[in-house]
Amino acid sequence: MIPNLLAWLLRAIQFGTIIMFGSMGEILTEKSGNLNLGVPGIMYLGSFAGFASAYLYENHAENPVPFLCVVIALLCGFLASALGGLIYSFLTITLRANQNVTGLALTTFGMGMANFFGGFLLKGEVYTAAPISNAAFSAKIPFLSDHLGLFGDAVFSYGFLAYAAILLAVFLHVFLNKTRTGLNLRAVGENPATADAAGINVTKYKYLATVIGAGISGIGGLYYVLDYNNGIWATTGQVEALGWLAVALVIFTTWYPLNAIWGAYLFGMLYWLYNFLPKLIGVTNIDRTSSLWQMIPYIVTILVLVGVSLRRKRESQPPASLGLAYFREER
């Protein structure tokens, strides 16, 4: 019973970390009024660039240093996904293209790019791995994870990115709600004309939030390959499903980064429900219904959306100008 529960929790927190990065990046982006539906593609870019750079470093360096694996992978993963955000920004902010269409195109683009270049790494195999980087990313916290029993297992046995995600959520919360820059950013997403009249550089804020947001989202994809998936790059398209879950999580959090912490873990629990719940209650043979179980996070999101709409609390609505392009001299 207990080991099963613990395994469930561990899996849920690791799973949650992936989508927490994805949705925190998207929260930052959406706070600027940009609805970037390219999250799955961006996470694909981040996962591929992170994996590929680490893989190439591991295979070409004489003595790969684990620390450098981490730095290189993070840098490349962040930059590649930020580049995806930059493409999106240029199209929607500068050229004022439709945000939904652009986002969806970016998803397709990111998937295609990652799988195309991934083919060169796979060299005909079904999967390939970067074990040194995986070890570096998934290293547990030394001492604490071994000497505190179950508590140590439950709290200190994750790779460092799981903790970074929590810190980032807190940081984002403080940034958005307690700083002038955060206030200005929220104003841009709520009412760009007002922000503009107040002397805020709307274009700059939108660009920065979207590009950095995409970079953060991409880290989620990177964490998926190099930690959650044991450093294995394969031909399966799981990152896409995770990307959509991250978008759903943004709605679930009602755009509050702090909610992303527990929301992501809850999504993780719900997502893995099909694997652990039957074991816990002693049912076997549920394989055929696992897809149904995996729907639960989405159903919960819909319920939250319904609840939020019914309550009509102004603070938990999406940024008012979300999805709209801004043009100053429009009459």
């Binding site: 403080v174 700083t179 104003a187 709520e190 007002t194 922000a195 107040a198 102004r314 603070e315 609505q317």
Partner: peptide, 25 residues
């Protein structure tokens, strides 16, 4: 009116202004 509905009066007033010092406001 150029106001952000979900902000308080004070938040609307300081919108876009440079801070007295960096960091928390």
């Amino acid at each position: 009116f150029k106001l952000v509905d979900v902000f308080t009066a004070a938040e609307n007033i300081i919108l876009g202004l440079p801070g007295e010092r960096r960091g928390r406001l």
